[in-house]
């Protein structure tokens, strides 16, 4: 009896040692078989239990069971550790190597700048408005108080739309004369005021056209934003307040704004707006011209049937490309229209 009891502890120790020294799962299984398998040493020890005297059996059985539980726990622990090791990658991952990408597209920089402008204005209660790009002289010039013989109306500067190809329905309409591509978004001012009664608070982003050959600073197509606010008792002070707010939103809180008297046929008084901030200083300049604005000319109000004695308002407009070029340091306007993917991906 004593001999069997004495054998339990060394055998357990040697089983634990064998399990723990197993380098992988097959070795562990082999070790398990060597002790707990049908022919295993520990199984053999248990079989010998029956040879003991009846009164000795409970104590020996208890001791053997305790050892077995201990071995099985060790086995489970070793198995878990080895399984964990087996499931790990065989080779280390190179975290510096490029991952497998999914591409997300980029919004065109002009879209992004336009949206920033729209967002700034909307915070002030402006609604986005829209109008046709093919316009007539009334909305593009006449109603905006542009003199009949103003150079802007020249075929030199403005694209006129053809009367349509010969024959067919188009030719029969006749009165297409004076149909043009709008030269500014200001035409939408007129369209909106014709349709809606005051007060008006709109912003109009859109494409405009001038008959310029493309170069680093010109493209026959470009974008403008127009703002129009009509209400009772609107003053130059209101115009300044809004412009300053919007440009600080757009160009940073260090932006300074300056108004210079200027001339536009549809505003009176008229101003040009210059701005200055760290970017401008970097360009070696004190001020950069950025927009034109003014108080809506009473003649314009009369043209759309608003009473200038009751209503006053301001309008301002600026080029989106110019803002984008300043903001991102883009030096050639044509890049916007080439849509080189290496360009688009930068924004």
């Amino acid at each position: 009896m004593a001999a069997l009891l004495d054998e339990i502890e060394p055998l357990k120790q040697s089983a634990l040692g064998a399990l723990q020294s197993a380098a992988d799962l097959p070795a562990l299984e082999q070790a398990k078989g060597a002790f707990l398998g049908a022919e295993g040493q520990f199984t053999a020890l248990m079989k010998r239990l029956g040879t003991l005297a009846k009164e000795e059996r409970p104590a020996a059985g208890k001791a053997i069971n305790a050892a077995k539980v201990e071995i099985e726990a060790a086995l489970a622990a070793c198995r878990e550790a080895l399984e964990l090791r087996a499931s790990a990658p065989k080779v280390p991952t190179d975290f510096t190597a490029p991952g497998r990408r999914r591409s997300l597209g980029h919004l065109h920089p002009l879209t992004q700048v336009t949206d920033d402008i729209v967002r700034a204005f909307r915070r002030l209660g402006f609604a986005v408005a829209d109008g046709p790009e093919i316009e007539d002289e009334v909305h593009c010039f006449d109603a905006l108080n542009t003199p009949k013989d103003h150079p802007a109306r020249d075929a030199q500067d403005t694209f006129y739309v053809g009367r349509g190809e010969p024959a067919g329905a188009a030719a029969s309409t006749g009165a297409v004369g004076g149909t043009l591509l709008r030269t500014h978004t200001s035409s939408v001012q007129i369209r909106v005021m014709e349709k809606m009664p005051p007060p008006i608070r709109i912003i109009v982003p859109g494409r405009v056209y001038r008959r310029d050959n493309a170069d680093a600073t010109h493209n026959p197509t470009f974008h403008q934003v127009e703002g129009l606010y009509v209400d009772r008792g609107v003053t130059v002070g209101d115009l300044k307040g809004t412009v300053e707010f919007v440009f600080r939103e757009l160009m940073g809180s260090d932006t300074r704004i300056r108004f210079r008297p200027h001339y536009f046929s549809y505003t009176e008084p008229s101003f040009e707006i210059d701005f200055s901030n760290a970017l401008v200083k970097k360009l070696g300049k004190d001020w950069l011209e950025i927009a034109g604005c003014g108080m809506v000319h009473p003649q314009v109000f009369e043209n759309v049937g608003y009473d200038p004695e009751v209503w006053s308002g301001w309008a301002f407009g600026f080029g989106i490309e110019r803002i984008a070029m300043i903001r991102y340091g883009i030096n050639d306007i044509r890049l916007f229209y080439e849509n080189d993917v290496r360009f688009l991906r930068q924004f």
Partner: peptide
Amino acid sequence: VDRIPSTPPRHAKGSH
């Protein structure tokens, strides 16, 4: 113009 004080945006809310 630089002496005309700016007034914060006020009045109507736009719609279109």
